[in-house]
Design a protein around this nucleic acid. Structure first.
Lengths: 222, 222, 222, 222
DNA sequence: TATGAATGAGCATTCATTCAT
DNA sequence: GATGAATGAATGCTCATTCAT
């Protein structure tokens, strides 16, 4: 996990992926499942091979190293998770002048919630490894910054100008939104995955309200 | 990391720790440093031994297993971090009828911020392992729930009655407060530890304001 | 050395042993030699690996644990030693109505003597570990009882009815025969392996005579 | 277990044992118990120390090495078991001209049976280690030969002259007697120690009869 | 005399990786 | 493309032994 830029890897990845053999698909599937469950460092390639019904050599024929297998698992998710957000969410909002920031938040949260529900296990891997694996963190961070933070600032700026947002530094606002939303995702999908299904609708709405208005009782004066 | 209750361990811990030899101290010190840096799973006992200037056997003579060494590193922190909060923060507030919830939040945040600044590395270990190490998570969770959540609910209830807090479920309020504060600590001390010192005063104030009032511009109508 | 029934192991063993690689063969060969010489507990896997000209990992790839290697060495011997005796010796005798018990004894002793001469080293291992290794003893015992003791009783019963044998409990007779024959094997092949070759023919005959007639001088009256 | 003659050790032993401290006594007691149960090679000095309520260093202060502790446990037993037999049994018999060989056997068996019942655990150790520990075997063997075999031969010679014994080599006769008696002891006290108490009187008598007369039905002709 | 902290070689086992088939 | 035998360094841990107090 050291001297390959993530972008290089991405490119290589795209080039290589002419066709995935059945075995390859099975390997990645299995790796996702086990990495999510026990973490990268606690998973052995032999376990993956056995569970995938594949010879251990086959893993290395296709992915070269265990590190590389991790990347092969994570990268498509990253590739998807970042730009998608940009295109389908941000722009969509920016073009509709009727939208409030609250509506934007709601759309963003719902959109990402669905995405993560569709990619629960990979999300678990990314979260865990982002914290545990400094190499990976260093690779993903600039990518994240470049794609997300920039757009978010623009968005905040826009709504600040409309007078909807409090006068805090853009960065502070962005960070707090990410913290609350990210905290929700991590808490729900990584830490307490087996909790019985809660009332998602209400939860989402509470989060939006919290981000917008905090916890102070607004009808205090009444 | 399996069949020892954390409370039992805590008790045993306290009893055993008659005197720590110099070597023991060096071992724990070094373990803290390396675990924090690379994570428990990526740290070998031989590395700890070498860095601590100690024979590898010495580690096992004192701590028995690597798991146990981790606990020996973490438990005093946990022991400190939980009840302390209870006594020195919660009660203090409950007794002063002048206090607002905002003041309580400020005190809580400041108090914990100081504590974590004093125990930066162990905090890093706890955060990382809480996510990565299911066994540890299962041990710490009930302890956390029992000590913190209960008190927090009482506190929220109290201020709800005073009409200061929004009408959301106590749990939802508590969770969001923890998410924001925890997110701040993790972001600052685990993820981006090497960032240049920011304006802490302002940051703390922003967080408080955010929790209390969200991001909506309150002077909107003016 | 605990929770596997020997019968299960036997079955598994037979199934697995599709083909043995050269290295596997070398490992077992070497293990037999060293276990026999120094005992299981005093033999390290690294010594076996070195002597076998194999990487230590190779042992574990094929046998999983040191315990398992011991079983892999012993089981084929056990499998052979028990039923063979049943089929080829017992039945053979039972079908010839001319046979005397003495002839049966002679056939039995000769047959087993040859078998052990052909498997000297494994016999040494089995004897030593049967005494030293309670787990192994507990596994082998019932198997031994089931296969040997039953048949022996039937045999003794048969010859008792022919009036050839003394009126002692079958069990007592069987036990003494085993003690004398087993004692001979152990003494000759385990305890004093390096004694110069004695007159085997005479020795066998002495044993038979001893079992049949004891040490009393029968021509006493003359 | 290498370059000390057992006789030297015996002497040294005798000299040293001025006074045994309480701790020493506890150590030997505990060592006997655990060696008997699990075998020398499978017992760690730390386990002995813990069970004996003694610091590990104390064992080494008194016995120097683990090997030496084993000897300290075994030697008094050997010292006792050999000469005692000589004095109290052999001579006793030799002086009474009325005695038959059968009576001698009975006296010998009873005498040794009692001795072993009084020293069950050490007997277990000696048997196991005699087989497992080549060094120990090489040390004990000559001692055994010198003390026992010689006397036994004399005894057999004596009764051969009286016409009581079969015309087999003295050695063969001695060996078979030892095998049967030793086999009984080992079977009863080492292999199946937990068997419910059998009818000892009858068992002893069966053994004597077996040694004297074998298993042939003597009243065949009737 | 007794302690117990410290040692470091040794142990069984795991693991990512290589390579001939 | 896929296999699976083979590797050997590394790992967590044990153990007999030493030595200052």
């Amino acid at each position: 996990m050291s001297n390959h830029s993530i972008l290089d890897a991405l490119i290589a990845q795209t080039k290589i992926s002419k066709k995935q053999t059945d075995k390859q698909q099975k390997i990645v599937e299995t790796a996702v499942k086990i990495f999510a469950e026990k973490g990268y460092a606690n998973t052995s390639t032999s376990e993956i091979a056995k569970d995938a019904g594949v010879a251990e050599g086959t893993i290395f024929r296709h992915y070269g190293t265990k590190d590389n297998l991790l990347l092969s698992v994570i990268l498509p998710f990253i590739k998807e998770s970042m730009p998608t957000m940009a295109e389908s969410v941000f722009n969509e909002i920016l073009n509709k002048d009727i939208a409030s920031f609250e509506e934007f938040l709601r759309a963003l949260l719902r959109n990402r919630l669905q995405f993560i529900k569709d990619n629960k296990e990979i999300f678990q891997i990314v979260v865990k490894e982002f914290l545990y694996n400094e190499g990976l963190r260093n690779e993903l961070s600039p990518y994240f910054t470049k794609n997300i933070v920039g757009r978010m600032h623009k968005m905040i700026e826009e709504f600040k100008e409309r007078g909807e947002l409090v006068n805090l530094p853009n960065e502070a606002i962005a960070k707090m939104i990410f913290t609350v939303i990210g905290g929700y995702f991590i808490s729900r999908f990584v830490l307490w995955q087996n909790q019985p299904d809660t009332n998602e609708e209400a939860e989402v709405e509470n989060i939006i309200q919290f981000i917008m208005n905090g916890i102070t009782n607004k009808s205090q004066g009444n």
